[in-house]
Design a protein around this nucleic acid. Structure first.
Lengths: 260, 260
DNA sequence: GCATGTGGCG
DNA sequence: CGCCACATGC
């Protein structure tokens, strides 16, 4: 693997955000981008515009909701859509592909709505299923990156006000436990590993001027296995991309790995 | 009265078209603008942005449908909303005001939907009521301009294909007769009086690439009484404003009067 | 708040 | 085709 910058961005409709996405690709020049919430079918995905910007796309789309993709400068290989675990599940939340020797998975974890709602139960099950997906298909010694919107803020440092967030969806003990259980496969939160004390966010509610007041949470993460973490040189949140007119409610997050 | 350029534009939602309207005001610098189809209430009308562009506004708004306004460099005087003829009518289709000594009326005539439908009957009645409005309040010897979307193409020259339009709403004999009866008050179609043989349009359907094929109709008109017609120097359609992204389906029409 | 879809209207 | 309204998701 050459040096590689991997980003993850919940775009909240790739068609509504196409101009911003293309602009951001041109300015940021990541090697791989995991997109979430495409909110379009495979056929509706703007392949041409993305290709013009220099990226091939592996797309697992869905009408109106969810939808994930992996963009890369070279065509993604061995694309696998979904968890393929036999569970009835119409949500397009996972796509995997190999890029330049690294297995990349774009993940849009369920939001969970209200605590103990069916959606919340589904969210916890999704995390368990994803852990089994890794156990079945991968080893922690392989170069593997899982990137996306995880809808979990793992620690107090990851929400703007831990007291206000106490017991709220994205920040409950059960969700954090599901997250830790996933990471226990052998995954490292790249941003947090480099910056153990940084309070940076990746999502801000559209309402109540949350972004202007920096009342956000860090729920978008680039997770990596040991072989990649060894090469980790930088990680961050592209807060600029949340500014201006008609932004996504999420900022892109990214991690950079040196050649090895 | 100083020299005066009066325009009329059905903007098809003033909020959806605000950027285009402001841009057009800055480029075109009309003295008076009659707007139709505001599709917003008085409270929702973007007064600030319009004022920043240099225009005061008299607004007769309505939620979702209709809505008319008069913009002017100096505050419109003696504003009168509606026909005030005692008829039950919730449609905001008429507003009048005096600007620089000229009585200006912004009119959004009913579309009429299908021939002989209740909406069609309402349209014919609207024309008769407007004629009575003029008879009651004005004299043909006063400087008076009625400007707006009349939803009538008065002559064969005013539709792209008179055969195709034969008997269609906007072009039926009854509508043309209602239009002539209104004009018989003492009003002149400024554009047609200057250009008796010009085939120019002011509205093109959003569908079927009608604008690209120039398959339009001329249904937006600046009507003026004798004292103004004497000063008429130019009239036209601002076809450019119908181009580009997210245009109104109407182009602005205008007439220019010299000082007198 | 800002997306999505649907359905009415022109 | 492109407004509006309304419902629904996050």
């Amino acid at each position: 693997m050459a040096g590689m910058k991997i980003a993850a961005w919940n775009v909240n409709s790739v068609r509504a955000r196409l101009d911003r996405l293309v602009e951001w690709l041109k300015n940021t020049q990541p090697d791989v981008v995991c997109l979430q919430e495409l909110k379009c079918t495979d056929a509706e995905f703007p392949r041409e515009a993305v290709l013009e910007a220099g990226y091939h796309a592996a797309v697992h789309g869905q009408k109106t909701y969810n939808g994930v993709a992996i963009l890369a400068r070279t065509p993604p290989q061995d694309v696998v859509s979904g968890l393929s675990d036999g569970v009835e599940d119409s949500h397009a939340r996972v796509i995997a592909a190999t890029v330049d020797g690294v297995r990349v998975v774009s993940v849009y974890a369920p939001n969970g709505q209200q605590v103990d709602s069916p959606a919340y139960v589904y969210k916890l099950e999704f995390y368990a299923r994803l852990r089994r997906y890794l156990d079945t298909r991968h080893k922690p010694g392989e170069p593997l990156a899982l990137c996306g919107d995880w809808n979990v803020a793992p620690e107090d440092l990851d929400v703007w006000d831990p007291v206000a967030w106490q017991g709220q969806t994205l920040f409950t003990e059960k969700e954090k436990a599901a997250w830790r259980e996933l990471c226990a496969f052998g995954l490292t939160d790249t941003f947090r590993s480099l910056y153990p004390a940084e309070k940076k966010f990746s999502w801000w509610d559209y309402r109540m001027l949350a972004f202007q007041k920096n009342q956000g949470v860090r729920i978008d993460h680039v997770l990596a296995t040991g072989p990649l973490v060894k090469r980790l040189t930088a990680a961050g949140v592209d807060r600029e991309a949340r500014k201006g007119k008609q932004p996504s409610d999420h900022a892109p997050v990214w991690a950079e790995f040196k050649a090895g």
